[in-house]
Structure formats: structure tokens, C-alpha cells
């Protein structure tokens, strides 16, 4: 049960039954039976091109499932309690931007709760007031995760968030996410080499099939 909103009980955020995913009519993988509940952490693993990002897009309703059914909790389907961190940042360095402004931009309505912005920035080990553009690649990735966490989502989706990050940055990101799991945050994380967070399990893609392994 999630404690993100204490008066509402949530048992399943995502339920997949016999799901097949792919693009342009080509099936990448099929046979996914999977349930994601509040507080769980799932790794999604597979070789390059096996369909990991396609799986995320399908589960979140951005692409149609080629077979099976996907049920999303309204928190997720309306996007209000969903936060995603993409592989690439589309923001161009054309305007000045402090770290906490970058995080606050991710909040619906913008200004939001300044305290939650500063907590999210501190949680990933960054200092407010620094220019976002002066951050290293790893620090920017921490800022992206802080931006996602500041929204206090029920589900956080990370697409290969640890590429090119050093050990310290990976540990800072994992710590920040772990703190929110106690409040019911569920995490789906695509990674080639999972860095060893205490996970609920993993979804493996290979040879056109899904396999779900619980820890």
C-alpha cells in the first residue's frame, strides 16, 4: 500500500497480462505477465535493441501493445503521479538556469513548493545556486533525478540513468530514490548493468521473450 497519499490505498500501479511489445508491426518481445506495486523497484535488462525503451513506452501508453492488456492506475494514466527521466536532455544552454530553477521547471505550475525543490536538490548531493550548465554530465543526471523526485511521483521511470556516471553519482542517485521508496515510490529502471540496489526483481528481454524474476 502506498503512503504517498495516506487516505487512498493503492495495490497495483501497473498490471500487464500476456503483453507483446514492438514497433512498426515488428514484435520485439512477448508474453509479459507483470505487476508493479507501490514501493517496488524493478530493473529492466536486455541487450541493445532488445526493446527495453519500447517496453517502457508501451507500458506508459505512449505506444500501443501489440498483444495482451495493460492496466494503469489513474495516478499513472493521467500522468499526475508519474515522473520520467529520459536518456537525453533536450534542453539547450540558451538561457541562464540555476540548479533549483531546473528542478522547479519540472513541477506542474512551476514555482511549486520551494522546500520540496531544495530537499530534492540536497537529496542528490547538489548545491542550490549553482548554474545547471556548469554541472558535469553526472551532476546533470543527478539534477534530472532531483527534478523527477521533486514532483513526489508514485512511479519513477528511469531510462538508462547511470550511463557514463561515476560510482559516487550512481550512489547519490540510488540513495535519493531509496529514501522515497519508504513512502511508496515505485521505480522502473532500464540498465545494462544494474548497480545493485535492493530490487523487487527484474524483467529480462531476450530471444523475443520476457522473463520476470523476483528477488
Amino acid at each position: 500500500m502506498s503512503t504517498l497519499h495516506a487516505d487512498i490505498e493503492v495495490r497495483e500501479l501497473i498490471t500487464c497480462a500476456a503483453v507483446a511489445v514492438g514497433r512498426a508491426g515488428r514484435v520485439f518481445a512477448s508474453g509479459l505477465d507483470w505487476t508493479v506495486r507501490p514501493g517496488e523497484w524493478w530493473w529492466i535488462e536486455g541487450a541493445n535493441g532488445s526493446g527495453k525503451t519500447t517496453l517502457l513506452a508501451t507500458v506508459l501508453g505512449e505506444l500501443p501493445a501489440l498483444a495482451g492488456s495493460i492496466t494503469l492506475h489513474p495516478w499513472i494514466s493521467d500522468g499526475g503521479m508519474l515522473a520520467t527521466v529520459a536518456q537525453l536532455d533536450e534542453l539547450q544552454p540558451t538561457l541562464p538556469l540555476a540548479v533549483e530553477e531546473y528542478v522547479a521547471l519540472g513541477l506542474p505550475g512551476g514555482r511549486g513548493d520551494r522546500a520540496s525543490v531544495l530537499v530534492a536538490v540536497a537529496d542528490v548531493g547538489l548545491e542550490p545556486g549553482r548554474s545547471y550548465w556548469a554541472l558535469s554530465g553526472g551532476q546533470r543526471q543527478r539534477a534530472r533525478i532531483a527534478r523527477a523526485l521533486a514532483r513526489r511521483p508514485a512511479l519513477l521511470v528511469l531510462d538508462e540513468p547511470f550511463n557514463h556516471l561515476d560510482g559516487e553519482s550512481v550512489a547519490a542517485c540510488l540513495r535519493a530514490c531509496e529514501r522515497r521508496r519508504a513512502d511508496g515510490l515505485a521505480v522502473l529502471c532500464v540498465a545494462h548493468r544494474p548497480p545493485g540496489a535492493a530490487a523487487t526483481g527484474r524483467v529480462l528481454l531476450g530471444d523475443g521473450r520476457f522473463s520476470v524474476e523476483s528477488s
Partner: peptide, 18 residues
Amino acid sequence: GRRVLLAAWEPRLARQQG
């Protein structure tokens, strides 16, 4: 102003925010 700037600068995030 913030939404207009976001639409120009980071349209994907603007879409995510409705």
C-alpha cells in the same frame, strides 16, 4: 509566461505537464 517559455524551450516536458 512559464508555460510559453517551457513550450519553446522544453516542449516534451510541457506536454508531460498537460
